[in-house]
Every structure is written in structure tokens, then in C-alpha cells.
Design a protein around this nucleic acid. Structure first.
Length: 186
DNA sequence: TACTCGATCGGA
DNA sequence: CCGATCGAGTAA
């Protein structure tokens, strides 16, 4: 069992560093019956500010983006393609709209699958990333090695134009095959 | 109010 | 490759 991350951490302006740091953290879900499910975060994307033409905040302050203008540490959940709920963690201080899309966790690849499998929907929008909301993040001290982390352009953001679509703001943790089970000495 | 188009996924 | 499915954003 890990430690819940203090809200202050999410209010940093270092969006890319925060995104990278989410890899290896545990996304923890409390089910209605009280049981918990916890999975390591394996893939994220950073969306950083109004100037980032891939970020929803490019349209400025609207009903949908309002949550990103508040302090970091709350969830931003929206419906994509009319079908899939997308889970983001709002980061940054007030009036610095930024968010980190949770694209994958241990055993679940793809942002739509993450939310479907963990029963995450828009009712969690603007809720705090703390145990009280039933969805939060814990640190178990797992630090992906630099060589295990890949950066690539973000997925599905061609509409942002060449410059912004090309930003390598997607972070993927390729977990080592033997993770968790140190090889025994003879 | 009338459009258009998605930070995706599963099936043909 | 294509359809699903609906709400945000924009123009009017």
C-alpha cells in the first residue's frame, strides 16, 4: 500500500515533468462495495496551456475547460467521439490550464479502456484526486528507469497542426519483463 | 438553432 | 477502413 500524493504536488507548472513522474504511480479505484483496485500507470500524455493547440484549453475558458483553470489535483473527465470517457489529471496553479491524459495502466491499454474497466465517467469531473472521490493516485516508490521510458508525439491530435502535433509529450513506460520478481541467485 | 468534428475502439 | 454516438465549440 502506497502513500497518497499531497495535492500541492499537482500545482507545479512543470507539466511535462509531472506527466513523466506519473509513470509507475498507482491509479487506485474504490468500488461501491468498498473493495479497491490498483494499477500502475504506464502511459500518459501532457496537454499544456492555451498556447498548446492540441489542448482543449486552446479555446480558452469554457464550460468544459473551466476545471483546468482551477488548481491541479482534480480530475478532468470528458466524453470523446460520443462514446469514450477520457480521464485526465488537472495540473498546475490556478489560471494555468493543463492536464495529463491517462492513456494506459497496467493491463489496460488505451484511454477508453482504462475508464471503461474502472467505471470512470463524467460524474468524476472536477472531483479531487483523493480517496474521498473514490479515485486517486498513490506512490509506491516505483521509479521507471530512464531507459524504460519512451517519448512519442501525442496520439490523434493532427488537428493541432504540425508544430504542436509533433511535440513528444506522450510518455510510455515499457516495463521490464521480469518486473517485480528479482531473479534468484544460484 | 444548425451545423462540424473529435485526446477512440471494435468489427468488417 | 469504417461506423458508432453525442456534446462542445462555432457561426449565425
Amino acid at each position: 500500500m502506497g502513500t497518497v500524493i499531497e495535492a500541492k504536488v499537482w500545482q507545479s507548472r512543470r507539466t511535462l515533468a509531472l506527466a513523466r513522474s506519473l509513470l509507475g504511480k498507482q491509479l487506485v479505484r474504490r468500488w461501491p462495495d468498498g473493495r479497491m483496485e490498483s494499477r500502475a500507470i504506464t502511459e500518459v500524455e501532457a496537454y499544456d496551456g492555451e498556447h498548446d493547440l492540441a489542448c482543449h484549453a486552446r479555446a480558452g475558458r469554457t464550460r468544459r475547460t473551466e476545471v483546468m483553470y482551477g488548481p491541479g489535483g482534480v480530475w478532468y473527465v470528458y466524453l470523446c467521439y460520443g462514446i469514450h470517457e477520457m480521464l485526465n489529471l488537472v495540473v498546475g496553479p490556478p489560471d494555468c490550464p493543463a492536464a495529463i491524459l491517462i492513456r494506459g495502466v497496467e493491463g489496460l491499454s488505451g484511454p477508453g479502456r482504462v475508464t471503461k474497466n474502472l467505471a470512470i465517467d463524467r460524474t468524476l469531473n472536477a472531483a479531487p484526486a483523493e480517496p474521498v472521490s473514490g479515485l486517486w493516485i498513490e506512490d509506491e516508490g516505483v521509479k521507471p528507469r530512464r531507459v524504460e521510458v519512451r517519448t512519442t508525439p501525442r496520439i490523434g491530435v493532427d488537428y493541432a497542426g504540425e508544430i504542436w502535433a509533433a511535440k513528444p509529450w506522450r510518455f510510455v513506460w515499457d516495463r521490464p519483463a521480469a518486473a517485480g520478481k528479482p531473479a534468484r541467485e544460484l
